[in-house]
Design a binder for these strands. Structure first.
Length: 296
DNA sequence: CGGTTTTGACCGGCGC
DNA sequence: GCGCCGGTCAAAACCG
């Protein structure tokens, strides 16, 4: 059960939570466009983010970690806790997917290298499974980040409905699947805890919201342009990036994400995902991120 | 009563 | 071709 997440008086997260990742982050910050996944790091990040439509000032971003490649931490007021953006692709690239999809934060078995491997399958075509036969779903870009929090489900201003939960291979913690309750919104969210560090929650968003946030029901933030960026609605994201210089613990609130980028053309057509709606023209969020940061 | 959560089954991709 | 595993569906159970 970790599902209680929602039930508990979920406060918007305590800013007290800190993430330690940053310090160790040894992510491979490489960016692989191959799959369209993006990883935050250095200037490249900015470019990438720009492509996604995020207008972020470098100054505002937080650079975490090390010197060389810092990680940018998007912070949104909605969340609290620390977050770390992770990119799947990067990870994938770096890590070998030997394990298959282990998305997970794998833990135990992670390749000794690093981290993590968090990959979610390579997007080569990503056919994820489709719901119906014949219909292939195009996987939208995803954006993932890690948050140190006791609560699994972070409040981000949108309403989510859980539609599944699965045990993750190599991880004692189950992965929960959420879908935006807005009928027209096809955004999905995946939440799981790092097996390496149970205090870390890895949240992966897929798709982009086509509506405004509903506000924080339980007292949180409300306004913000969007807790999550609805790209269409809000071209510029309002993420707040706290300038963190410490390589380590930072408390932040998290963030947001969104964006869009389309993956190019994958096939855009069919999709299902959007089928409905979402103008996927723009793409959605980014990709995932590997938590592995802490390798070791 | 309506909406959400839970949970097992099913589907489909990928690696071996 | 087979097995493994991630992701999704859908019915039943819950909850406010």
């Amino acid at each position: 059960m970790e599902e209680n997440k929602d039930k508990a008086p979920r406060a918007p997260f305590d800013p007290e939570t800190t993430a330690e990742f940053a310090g160790d982050s040894s992510w491979p910050l490489g960016v692989d466009d191959s799959d369209g996944s993006y990883f935050y790091s250095g200037d490249r990040d900015r470019s990438i983010l720009s492509e996604f439509g995020w207008n972020i000032d470098p100054v505002q971003m937080n650079r975490i970690g090390s010197d060389t490649d810092g990680l940018w931490l998007p912070v949104h007021s909605a969340f609290s806790g620390s977050v770390e953006p992770v990119d799947t692709a990067a990870v994938a690239a770096t890590s070998s997917r030997s394990n298959n999809q282990s998305v997970s934060t794998s833990s135990s078995e992670d390749p000794p290298e690093k981290s993590t491997v968090f990959d979610e399958k390579p997007p080569s075509e990503i056919p994820s499974k489709s719901k119906k036969k014949g219909q292939k779903r195009i996987r939208q870009p995803r954006f993932a980040f890690m948050t140190k929090s006791d609560v699994d489900h972070l409040e981000d201003g949108y309403r989510w409905r859980k539609y599944g939960q699965k045990a993750v291979k190599n991880s004692p913690f189950p992965r929960s699947y959420y879908r935006c309750t807005n009928i027209k919104c096809m955004v999905k969210k995946r939440v799981e805890r790092s097996s390496e560090d149970p205090t870390i929650v890895i949240t992966t968003y897929e798709g982009q919201h086509c509506h405004h946030t509903v506000g924080f029901p339980r007292g949180g933030i409300t306004s913000h342009e969007s807790a999550f960026p609805s790209v269409h609605l809000v071209p510029s994201i309002s993420h707040i990036y706290y300038p963190i210089q410490m390589p380590i613990e930072y408390n932040a609130t998290l963030t947001s994400i969104s964006q869009a980028s389309q993956t190019q053309d994958e096939e855009a057509g069919g999709s299902n995902t959007g089928g409905s709606n979402t103008p996927m023209d723009e793409g959605l969020l980014g990709d995932i991120v590997p938590p592995g940061m802490r390798n070791r």
